[in-house]
Amino acid sequence: MKEFKHEELVEATESYSRTHLIGKGSHGCIYKATLRNGQIVAIKTPSLGVCNLQDTSTIENEAHILSSLSPNRFLVNLLGTSHDSTTGHRVLVMEHMPGGMLHDSLHLTSTPPSWPRRAKMGVQIARAVRFLHDSKPLIIHRDIKSENILFDSKSNIRLADFGLAVCASSPSHQRLVSLPAGTMGYLDPSYTTPCKLSTKNDVFSFGVVLMEIMSGTKAIDVSRAPASIVEWSMGLIEENRIMEICDKRVEMPRHMEGAIRHLIILASRCVSSDEETRPSMTEIVSKMERFRIPICIWADMVQGLVHLKTRKKPETVAGTSGHGGVPRPKFLLREILAGDIL
């Protein structure tokens, strides 16, 4: 693993100035930094509270977990580490994710994600968790939530924050699993004791995130009755009102109703109170990849393009002039090529 000179990190963050701070949690602070070679990175340091308690186990654990994994396009990968010579604490140098958090994309934006985009998000998150569970030895994340899911420069999903993750066969990390850990709303109710730790705990958390993506509502929302997204959504499913779970802010394309219905049912299986009936991440990815937009939709798109191309004056994108506007056929192609489908 690459060892960065701490002096360079101090210089790149202007002594860890608040102007470089881009994220803050109970275990660490994240700073955006530009290294001397021009590379933009994220630097993770123990939070002040952690430093005061002299407990940097989560930072050390994250370094251990990520260094044991090969780089993966669905994870926020570790680039290297450094040591603060003043405090002796380890510092992590991570890939920088300029696209922000899934949580903010769902709850703090005036333009919520489209339905094809949401379906794509779900598949990418599932692939990230599957990669962890397929690793040898397997990794259990233990804190899958929308705030730990980030977007890279191409708006693809990356799973982050491995401070609570557990390497299933590593006895050196038993101290981390002395008590169940996670975030309220996403934490599996079945995970009540250390011996209950399993990949099914991550499956439950993934199911909550998938419900959050489909509904556009938070995992815990006190303005909703019931406040828990699991209880609320399962109640609607039991009453056969599945599509009422869907985010009302975004119009549902008719051709996607079937796929979205399947995704919601799959999410309900993930959060089942009977953990034995929850699917594995391999099964989840397999099923989600089957919910792709039917080929007939592509045929409809192509037919529409041909129809528009035969017009004497191509329809332009709303808000542009006929002289400088983009012909509608090209605009549709741009949407397609941007990957706004599964």
Rank of each mutant, 00 (worst) to 15 (best):
H27L: 01
I30R: 01
L79C: 08
E8P: 06
E251M: 14
P294E: 14
P226H: 08
S110T: 14
G88H: 09
C29H: 09
K145N: 04
V306T: 11
T19F: 07
K312D: 12
G325W: 02
N240A: 11
M256W: 03
E244A: 08
L53R: 15
A119D: 12
A225R: 15
D152C: 02
K32G: 03
P314S: 02
P194G: 01
L150W: 00
I242M: 08
K218P: 01
E147I: 05
H27E: 05
S15M: 12
D274H: 06
R241Y: 04
K330M: 10
D247Q: 08
H83V: 15
S286P: 07
M234H: 09
D247W: 06
I284G: 00
H20A: 10
V317C: 08
K287T: 12
E95P: 07
S273N: 14
S286Y: 13
M234V: 06
K248I: 12
I157W: 01
D55F: 13
P279V: 03
G235F: 05
K218Y: 13
H323C: 11
S155V: 02
L79V: 03
L159I: 02
R18F: 13
T81V: 13
R278N: 05
L35C: 03
E251N: 14
A219P: 09
S17F: 07
V91C: 05
E335D: 10
I242S: 08
S153H: 08
L66G: 04
R224H: 06
